[in-house]
Amino acid sequence: MIRVVLADDETVVRMGVRAVLAAADDVEVVGEAGTGREAVDLVLAHRPDVAVLDIRMPELDGLDAAAELRRLTTATAVLVLTTFADDAYISRALGEGASGFVLKTGDPHDIIAGVRAVAAGAAYLSPAVARRVVDQLAGAGPRPRAVERVGGLTGREREVLGLVGAGLSNAEIARRLHVVEGTVKVYVSTVLERLDVRNRVQAAIVAHEAGLIPPELRA
């Protein structure tokens, strides 16, 4: 069971997201908050697998809450609820440790898919915002700086990075490469360290910038 803390200062939105998550038989909402400070306190109290945080909240906004959670615990993945108007926050969210973004007004199934993905250790961008985010942060084609950054990786490490960039979980990468999941975890950790990035979403952006996404997995 994936345990979730949900935070949004709009009661109607929070009720709607909770109803969406309740439809998934593998997700349980263990706490709800209306502010970022309440969200941090609930996460520390319940130690959930995922914190679903709205960006715009009083006391602490979702990004400040994500930053504080990163300092206090690494066990809870952060999935950010966003709107198209929040594009300017995305690069900051990456630096604060968010593992994914879903659109509040998008397909409800994206929220469930996002929770499942980040709980499994994958990065997740809902289809409705994926292209917008990638275009904003990565550009339309390979960038020389990114190509240079991945030049020091081995062939297998670049392959793993491309699959991370495509949004695959460790288990999915393991099946695709015919290796055990533990091996993938080692590769991912090594890639994050060698690229000097904080999380899989940042690594995914580098993968897009360097043109490493397998053609059949491109959005």
Score class of each variant (00 low, 15 high):
Pro144Ile: 08
Leu217Val: 04
Gly36Asn: 00
Ser189Cys: 01
Thr105Cys: 05
Arg71Gly: 12
Gly106Val: 06
Asp49Leu: 05
Ala51Asn: 11
Gly167His: 05
Arg149Tyr: 07
Glu32Arg: 07
Asp26Asn: 07
Gly62Asn: 13
Val40Asp: 04
Val5Met: 11
Leu192Ala: 05
Leu153Pro: 04
Asp87His: 10
Gly16Gln: 04
Leu72Phe: 08
Gly141Ser: 15
Asp41Cys: 00
Leu63Tyr: 03
Val40Lys: 09
Gly152Ala: 06
Ala117Arg: 13
Pro58Cys: 14
Ala19Glu: 03
Val102Met: 10
Ala174Pro: 10
Thr73Gln: 14
Leu168Pro: 08
Gln202Cys: 05
Leu6Gly: 05
Ala207Leu: 01
Asp41Leu: 09
Leu44Tyr: 03
Val118Lys: 09
Ala93Tyr: 13
Gly97Ser: 12
Gly165Tyr: 02
Pro58Val: 07
Thr190His: 12
Leu94Asn: 12
Val147Arg: 09
Thr76Leu: 02
Arg175His: 03
Ala207Asn: 03
Glu157Gly: 04
Thr35Ser: 00
Ala219Gly: 08
Ile173Phe: 01
Arg92Val: 07
Val206Cys: 14
Leu195Tyr: 08
Tyr124Arg: 01
Val147Ile: 13
Ala24Met: 12
Arg18Asn: 15
Ala130Asn: 11
Ala67Gln: 13
Asp135Val: 04
Pro142Met: 15
Asp196Cys: 03
Glu96Pro: 11
Ala171Gln: 13
Glu159Val: 08
Val80Ser: 04
Ala19Phe: 08
Ile2Asp: 05
Glu172Ile: 02
Gly100Pro: 00
Leu63Ile: 15
Arg143Pro: 02
Thr11Val: 10
Val29Glu: 13
Leu212Phe: 12
Arg176Phe: 05
Ala88Leu: 15
Leu79His: 13
Ala93Thr: 05
Leu21His: 13
Asp61Met: 08
Glu68Gln: 14
Arg3Leu: 10
Ala140Thr: 15
Val179Arg: 11
Val17Gln: 14
Glu59Thr: 11
Gly62Lys: 00
Ser91Asp: 08
Leu53Asp: 06
Ala66Glu: 04
